[in-house]
Computed example of a mutant assay.
Amino acid sequence: MLVFRSDVLNVLFENLDIPNKKPLSLNTEDLYKKIVLSMGILYRFEAPLNKWTIDSIYQMCVLTETSPQSIFNKNYFLSKVTEEGRITLLGDTLIIVKGKELIKEKLANHAIVEEAQRYFQLSI
């Protein structure tokens, strides 16, 4: 449980590869670069992995990355869990959840870049 907690608190979820048209690769070296070195998009599956095959996961990921209906092709989506709640940047909206408090703020274009750097240490 401690490993999961550490993972959730330290690995952010983002979709920057998708709007940058960087294709999904299951090559071991590419996955290492994406997950470990560059913190690229990381898919998490709630169901046990033994119910999934690499082919079915790959197909689902490609659909998510390429479908015009996918939210990932419409907005930036950055999200991370914090000790108090969650911080999310969805398009031009910054959402901060602290306990039971919810703060939503519409951002100007320059502020989107600033907040991505501030909260996620990412340049977009």
Rank of each mutant, 00 (worst) to 15 (best):
T66P: 04
L49A: 03
Q69H: 11
C61S: 10
K74F: 02
T82D: 01
F45I: 13
A47S: 15
L31A: 08
T66Q: 15
I71E: 09
R44D: 02
I57F: 07
K74P: 02
T64D: 14
N50P: 00
F45E: 08
T66C: 04
L78Y: 10
E46I: 08
W52S: 03
R44G: 04
S38Y: 15
C61T: 04
L42D: 07
A47L: 14
M39S: 15
L49H: 05
L42E: 06
V36N: 11
F77P: 00
T82N: 02
I54A: 14
K33T: 09
V36I: 15
N50A: 00
Y32W: 13
N75G: 00
F72T: 02
W52M: 07
L37T: 00
T82G: 04
M39D: 14
W52I: 00
M60T: 13
Y43C: 11
D55N: 11
G40N: 05
F72Q: 06
A47C: 03
T66R: 09
I35L: 15
I41D: 11
M39E: 14
L63N: 12
A47Y: 11
S38A: 10
W52G: 02
M39A: 15
T82C: 05
D55A: 12
L37Q: 13
I41N: 12
S38I: 00
T64Y: 07
E46W: 05
L42G: 02
R44K: 12
T66N: 10
N75L: 05
E65K: 05
T82V: 03
G40E: 09
P48Q: 06
D55E: 13
R44N: 05
I54C: 07
T66V: 03
R44C: 04
S70D: 03
I35P: 00
S38N: 15
K33V: 08
L49Y: 05
P68F: 01
I35Q: 11
F45G: 03
V62K: 15
Y76C: 04
S70M: 04
K34M: 01
P48S: 06
N75S: 10
I57C: 09
Y43T: 07
S38F: 15
L78F: 14
L49R: 05
T53L: 05
T66I: 04
S38W: 09
T53W: 03
K80H: 09
S70A: 06
N50T: 01
Y58E: 15
I35C: 06
T53Y: 02
T66G: 04
V62H: 08
